[in-house]
Amino acid sequence: MSKHDFTAAEFAARLVHVRAAMAARDLDWLVAVHPTSIHWLTGSDAKSYQEFQCLLVGARDEPLVVLTRQGEVHEFETDSAAGEVHGFGGGENEDPIAAFAGVARRHGVLGRRVGLEVPAYYLHPHHYLGLRAVIGDALVTEATELIAGLKLVKSPAEIGYIRRAAVLADLAMARFAGALAAGQSELALAGGIHDTLLRNGSGIAASPINLASGPRSAYSHGAPTARLLREGDFGNLEFGATFNRYTATIGRNFVLGKPTPRMSELHDIVLRASGAMIGAIRDGVPATVPHRAARAVIGEAGLEPYRVHTSGYALGPGFPPSWAEPLHMIGDSPHVLKAGMVVTIEPPVFIGAEGLGARIIDNVLVTPTGAEVLAQTPRDLIVG
């Protein structure tokens, strides 16, 4: 993604929404750290999330100010909507927090009411402590979900990008189904998926592919290995396709030859649980409701202990290691589904003692009256 992927008007509208949310919290400045926050406001696709970075957002008409490692300064200057870009480090080490202090003083951030994003993965504890020391008593709130919450409902342009990613995911799943055969390695099958995605215009997904077969099918996020598939294997697959960083995910179960009754049973359970979730989704529904619908199906089958993670989550543009947004469909979720959100449907059953696991993953667009499934790939068990 770059500043050219959306109109200037869309970027301006996003900033208006952020400033309104800041005003509601009585904030003068927001220090955004999460790469998707920086991406949403500036269009930057830079790899700067590997080191310290931040975006200073003023509550009034201040320019968007980026602080990033020196190697990404030119990219921000030419390919983002940032108004001002500062670099640190480069050929020699430099303390990024000292650089932040200088930029913050220059823009009058210190001494004002400041909110700070504290995102998982992207802010080192030492840098967090350094920011707290520099900002001091002016740090009045951790505003990690301020921008993230505004991003949950997608614009028509964003939904268009997700639809294009879903088409790419279908293409790659068809490649997998056509190549599935005994004697193929998990890695070779994964390579075919990546080949199809990249040749057809997908970017690199934020999270690695999951592909596990045989006894490894009980691994809920098993990476592909050199293991050769053999007749009778059951397995599960999940991957993401992207378009301008907007992600579509898909997951299916597969079998080499005729499935056993237990394999068919597990696949049927997660299929019915997924259907129950989709049937419960519409505008205004609490995120707990689809989760409870899936949980009821799995619980009635006596498999509640093997429902090992969330039933689904909101999906957006992603930077490694995750494409998930903060909304999760789980028992204590505070979120409400709204038209324009895109969420994953993936209630799981993974039984270590049996060496079996099943999960079907689809993305749905929340609509005023229900849910639109974005993938066209059948949800049946793939037989090789």
Score class of each variant (00 low, 15 high):
2 S>W: 08
6 F>C: 09
6 F>N: 09
11 F>H: 06
13 A>H: 09
13 A>I: 06
13 A>G: 10
16 V>H: 08
16 V>E: 14
23 A>W: 02
24 A>L: 03
30 L>M: 01
31 V>C: 04
32 A>T: 00
33 V>R: 02
34 H>G: 07
36 T>H: 05
38 I>P: 01
40 W>V: 08
41 L>S: 07
42 T>L: 12
47 K>T: 12
48 S>L: 08
49 Y>C: 07
52 F>S: 06
59 A>T: 07
60 R>M: 05
62 E>T: 02
66 V>P: 02
66 V>S: 05
66 V>Q: 05
71 G>R: 15
81 A>E: 12
82 A>I: 07
84 E>L: 14
90 G>C: 04
90 G>R: 06
95 D>F: 04
97 I>W: 02
99 A>S: 13
101 A>Y: 04
108 G>C: 04
109 V>L: 15
110 L>Q: 13
111 G>Q: 04
113 R>L: 09
115 G>I: 10
118 V>G: 09
121 Y>H: 11
122 Y>L: 07
122 Y>A: 06
122 Y>D: 09
124 H>L: 14
135 I>Q: 10
139 L>P: 05
143 A>R: 07
145 E>R: 10
146 L>E: 03
150 L>C: 08
153 V>Y: 10
154 K>T: 07
156 P>S: 05
159 I>V: 12
164 R>F: 06
166 A>E: 05
167 V>A: 14
170 D>P: 00
174 A>F: 00
176 F>S: 00
183 G>S: 04
191 G>P: 03
194 H>V: 11
195 D>Q: 13
201 G>T: 09
208 P>E: 01
209 I>V: 08
209 I>Y: 00
213 S>A: 15
216 R>K: 10
223 A>E: 11
233 D>W: 01
234 F>S: 06
238 E>H: 07
239 F>Y: 01
242 T>G: 11
243 F>H: 15
245 R>M: 08
251 G>V: 01
252 R>G: 02
255 V>S: 06
255 V>P: 01
255 V>H: 03
262 R>V: 04
266 L>Q: 05
266 L>I: 13
271 L>K: 08
274 S>R: 13
274 S>A: 15
278 I>D: 10
279 G>C: 12
289 V>K: 13
290 P>Q: 14
292 R>D: 15
293 A>P: 03
294 A>P: 01
295 R>G: 04
296 A>D: 12
300 E>Q: 15
301 A>W: 00
302 G>E: 09
302 G>A: 12
307 R>G: 06
310 T>P: 00
311 S>H: 09
313 Y>T: 03
314 A>E: 05
314 A>D: 10
316 G>N: 11
317 P>S: 15
321 P>F: 04
335 H>M: 15
335 H>R: 14
342 V>T: 13
344 T>S: 15
347 P>T: 15
348 P>S: 07
348 P>F: 06
351 I>V: 12
353 A>E: 15
356 L>F: 08
364 V>M: 06
366 V>Q: 10
368 P>V: 09
370 G>S: 13
370 G>L: 13
371 A>C: 13
374 L>I: 05
376 Q>F: 02
376 Q>K: 12
377 T>V: 05
377 T>R: 00
378 P>Y: 11
379 R>N: 02
384 G>R: 00
